[in-house]
Design a protein around this nucleic acid. Sequence first.
DNA 1: TAGATTGTTAATCGATTAACAATC
DNA 2: TAGATTGTTAATCGATTAACAATC
Lengths: 246, 246
Amino acid sequence: MINFSQFGQRVVTLDGLLNNHNYFFRKDVMGKKTIVIPEPVLRRLPLYYHLFKRLSESGYEKISCTLIGKELDLAPPQIRKDLAYTGIRGVPKVGYEVLELIEFIEQFLGWNKLDEAFLAGTGNLGKALLNYKGFDKYKFKIVAAFDVDPALIGKSFASIDVLHIDKLGELAQRMGVKTGIITVNQNAAQMVADLMVAGGMKGIWNFAPVNLKTPDDVIVQNENLVSGLSVLTKKMQLNNRTGEIK
Amino acid sequence: MINFSQFGQRVVTLDGLLNNHNYFFRKDVMGKKTIVIPEPVLRRLPLYYHLFKRLSESGYEKISCTLIGKELDLAPPQIRKDLAYTGIRGVPKVGYEVLELIEFIEQFLGWNKLDEAFLAGTGNLGKALLNYKGFDKYKFKIVAAFDVDPALIGKSFASIDVLHIDKLGELAQRMGVKTGIITVNQNAAQMVADLMVAGGMKGIWNFAPVNLKTPDDVIVQNENLVSGLSVLTKKMQLNNRTGEIK
DNA sequence: TAGATTGTTAATCGATTAACAATC
DNA sequence: TAGATTGTTAATCGATTAACAATC
């Protein structure tokens, strides 16, 4: 086993980094141990992280699932399972160490090493992401932006230069940038995705409301504000209506 | 039954608007018929909508679930169930009418009447949302912005004025604005939410990574870009690792 | 008509929740 | 120690998928 990292006296192995808890592993077709991390867990981990950061700043050193549950409106057993994915172990009757939780989540989500990305499409949404400072905390950095509009090429936003989209593929390859962000309109999205794939990119964060066709080894994460908005407005409607009809 | 709207010869009643399909209804405690729309369905409806819009622009008039499934990578029975929630009915062997689909989704999600909102917190993310033109299509409109920073108050972005947060509650009440957007930092988020609730707002679109405490009749929709990012980066890691370890 | 597609029920799958022994 | 909390298995719940009769 490979020594991957150390926290105090605990040795975290590569397996351990994936997970210390045997019940998460499943045998795949080849009889090999594999692990699949449920997406809901990955989505909740950042929420825990933010809470722990705030707790840590307020001087908290230990925290139990009961308390976390009160704060985030989650059931304690679910929290235990979620946190277990990071490989952390708590102490019965005591709980978890806040600093350790923070470290384990950072490690687990890869927030300990810089992740560089290209962004394609410097419209409103694109510019917003370029100007957004919040990504620093997660070692996520947009290093170049791309567009086709001559009026935008040559400009820069938040000191990130806008280049012509034709240069994306070659630059990605040369700089080894593996993550692409798509903020172009829906008609151009597939074309841009193709350029990214051709440039050897392995992950696409897609803000266009289209289902991108990509090879199996390219991960696509779709983001769509309108989905969230429609959940909100529909729930408000239904809330209202029950009041009206009764 | 109340006549709510008409599409051609079909009369859509209030019940029909909720749903035409009896198997979606469940008897609640009082023996009354109620319906709960699963959140995944609400999140997918906008994706269908965008596809239908594009199809309609390309001249398509009819579409089957088989085709929709190919385009969006979804299983046909799931698509049928999802669309059924809007109350639309298809024709066996033929499929659905694209224009009708568009109308039913707009109607179902309430995109046919203007929904006004206030935004609190004109930092990077807030400004991005103010400048974002995409909401027009869904009849969603930010009509005023709020902050505490004297340097920002009095300014305007995309011709939306920034006012002092103290005015939020009273204005919300006077203008009857029921939807609030929170783009302040995590420490101020709960305070702002309290102001919104006090102003009679019934829906909060929350971009701060905090679990807001609100009364039961206030809907909170949490939005967190970092959740999406962590799903993407973790999946990329795991993809990579299987390649490495083999 | 024959074949494709819908509407709807039943079966499956996966995530959440409940239960409880182990532990500090 | 006693009681609270963890780690882990089992039960439940809800969403997705499969199956198939009805239909144009």
